[in-house]
Amino acid sequence: MASSAPRKRAATVITEVDATRATDLYRTVARIRAAELVLQRHITEHGFGGFWHPGLGQEGVQAGAVAALRTDDYMFIAHRGLGYALAKGMSLESLFGDLFARTVGSTGGKGGGTVHFVDPERGVLGQGGAIGSSFVLGAGAAISGQMLGTDRVCAIFFGDGASSRGTWHESALQASVWKLPIVWICENNGWAVSARISEQSPTENIADRASAYGVPGVIVDGQDAIAVFDAVTEAVDRARAGHGPTLIEAKTMRIRGHYEGDRQKYRDDLLVGDEIPRDPLGILREHVPASVADQLDDDARHEAESVLASVLEAPRADPSIIYKDVWS
């Protein structure tokens, strides 16, 4: 398998067990979507003290992949959205708290506007501000997991842009040789800020590179959360069993700008705007009763709105926080 071209996963046949799974995934996607939309609206109306990189339309990858992980599995997230962390169990309050630099945030009020959430107890280990730096960090977490005698797996999310970094090459080689328990999940949304994937990669698929590193490459429809869940589950099982890493490429799309407020003058494709073609919610609705889905949408919207309101009321940190936590 490792030496062949990447394998495209076929659409999944839904069983009764999967129906429950579909409802769970719907709930997660709906919660991420509601958080995205409430943030987008707030930033449009009130501005923002930093940069927000929306993940709108990519929620299916985030929800599907994280659902395949255990709570104690490690995870390095990418910079589009907060869906990974929310799906892994961090509270929306702690995430919004970070975005708006409130004491309820996971950083206690030091964060703000960027996506540097961590929650070690839930395996959320952060996002490298230098794009692509998570590959090497994730390999280290995987080594710790091995050395401490656990069967923890480390999932590393990254974009098509990050796949160009030398950190990827160094990590892919070493992790493959050492058979580290890693799952690389590339969210290929076709754009690295203003650069098209075709300008960065001579091959159509990021997963085409897998065979060079001696690992399986899998291409999956990133808008189909169930397909992503299945693909990641197989890769996680493989990693946990000691057979080494897998490269999964989830094809998705970037609906909004690189950051909220990016006017995207460099872009001429028809995706610009709010319309989400092949919306992951719509695809999941095929497997979830409409009344259940409607209720989950309402619940998610209510959660996002009420949490945002309460977070905006929460205090900012005392300025003395700038001196804290330089040293252990």
Binding site: V136, L137, G140, A141
Partner: peptide
């Protein structure tokens, strides 16, 4: 070999993996 690991020529990996391992409970 699990505690004394020969790497390839990859300084970025060496230190990056050390950082990732340090934040997850080992002392590289």
């Amino acid at each position: 070999p699990l505690r004394v690991r020969d790497t390839a020529i990859n300084e970025t990996f060496i230190v990056g993996a050390a950082a990732g391992a340090a934040m997850t409970g080992t002392i590289p």
